[in-house]
Simulated assay, not measured.
Amino acid sequence: MIEQPIIDVQNVTFHYHSDSQPALNNVSLSVNKGEWLSIVGHNGSGKSTLARILNGLIIPESGFVNVCGINLSEETVWDIRRHVGMVFQNPDNQFVGTTVRDDVAFGLENNGIPRDEMVRRIEWATEKVKMDQFLDQEPHHLSGGQKQRVAIAGVIAVQPAIIILDEATSMLDPIGRNEVLETIKLLKDQGIITVISITHDLEEASHADRIIVMNDGRKFAEGTPAEIFALDEKLIEIGLDLPFPYLLSKKLRAAGIPITKNHLTEGSLVNELWTLKLKS
């Protein structure tokens, strides 16, 4: 028996203004439970509009959206939002509590979770993102990566089925970015959450199970990271930058170094180079 997708989007169109080009133009996609889907594209490609529709922040003009078995409409928006949590670009704009503990508790209080259960979930969620030693810290004392991990803890404490990262690493330094991506991968691998990441960064997208490329409000391409990066120059033509490890792999192979493939991550490329060195 084939499992029904946790999200099903069919023929969705949306305009911000009636006389404008559509922000989304007849877009269809599905998301499977437990996977990490990355939606990539340049500014104006439609990826952020799609994220807002998946969370019920805007309603499409045509087509339908089904999230966790619920068809999106003005009447079901709040039901859908219980299943979908979002982490946004700027971690400083997300904090409402004076301590990490208070901030993670905020969503639980809004949902009327009993105190004993709230305490248990705060401990569980902060431990999952490795921030349980910072419960009494003031958020402004944390690094950017730590702040985003606290934001993720606040989302998973409410126990949604899906988490959407809307450019959630774009303002972080490389260390903070890696912290967040490793946290998300761990949560996904443990079966805690289905992940949708919205990004213009193809190197970040390489961590996902599957990538959808958006361009001018349409779905330009869909596939595994390896399949998407094989499009190569076509991605550059629509305003995306290929990851540095991928470009370096190509140059090394062109120079005659026997690398077996164009690597998507630095770690993968370094491992193969190290193996070649040991063999030489």
Rank of each mutant, 00 (worst) to 15 (best):
L278P: 00
Q4K: 14
G217W: 03
G223M: 03
Q190D: 15
N93E: 13
K251V: 09
I198R: 00
G46N: 01
I2P: 12
I70Y: 12
A153T: 03
L278W: 03
I211K: 00
S62V: 08
Q146K: 02
F14Q: 00
S30A: 09
V213G: 03
I228V: 13
F14Y: 13
E3N: 12
M131C: 13
P245S: 01
Y246H: 07
D116C: 12
I163Q: 03
D8I: 02
G85Y: 03
L72P: 03
I113C: 12
D241S: 13
T99W: 11
D92P: 06
R120C: 01
G217N: 01
R81A: 06
D201V: 11
S62E: 13
E233G: 02
E233M: 01
H200S: 12
N11F: 05
V150E: 08
H15Y: 15
D102L: 03
G239W: 09
G34K: 07
R177V: 12
Q4N: 14
D241H: 10
L276N: 10
T265R: 12
I162W: 12
A205I: 09
M86P: 05
K277R: 09
T265P: 04
S38I: 05
E109P: 06
P243T: 04
F88I: 08
Q89P: 14
N215M: 00
G34R: 06
T199Y: 05
P258S: 09
I257M: 15
I152M: 05
N110S: 07
G217H: 04
K261P: 03
R253F: 00
F220Q: 02
V67L: 10
E203G: 07
I7G: 03
L252M: 10
G34H: 03
I2H: 04
R253N: 05
D241L: 07
P174D: 05
W124R: 00
P91V: 09
L135Y: 12
L54M: 12
R121H: 07
L202S: 04
V180N: 04
L54I: 11
A125D: 04
G217F: 01
Q89W: 02
M131T: 10
G56E: 03
V129I: 10
D209M: 08
G191N: 13
G176V: 08
A105D: 04
P243D: 05
K234D: 13
R101S: 09
F106V: 04
E227D: 12
S62W: 08
H42R: 13
S28N: 01
I53P: 06
N93I: 00
G46R: 03
N262W: 08
N11K: 10
F64E: 14
L72S: 01
D232H: 11
K277H: 11
L242Y: 01
G176E: 08
I162E: 06
R177D: 09
V84M: 07
V84A: 02
F88E: 10
V150Q: 05
G97Q: 01
N215L: 00
S280M: 10
E237S: 15
Y16M: 15
N111H: 14
V180Q: 06
P91Q: 07
A125Y: 09
V104E: 11
A153M: 11
T265L: 11
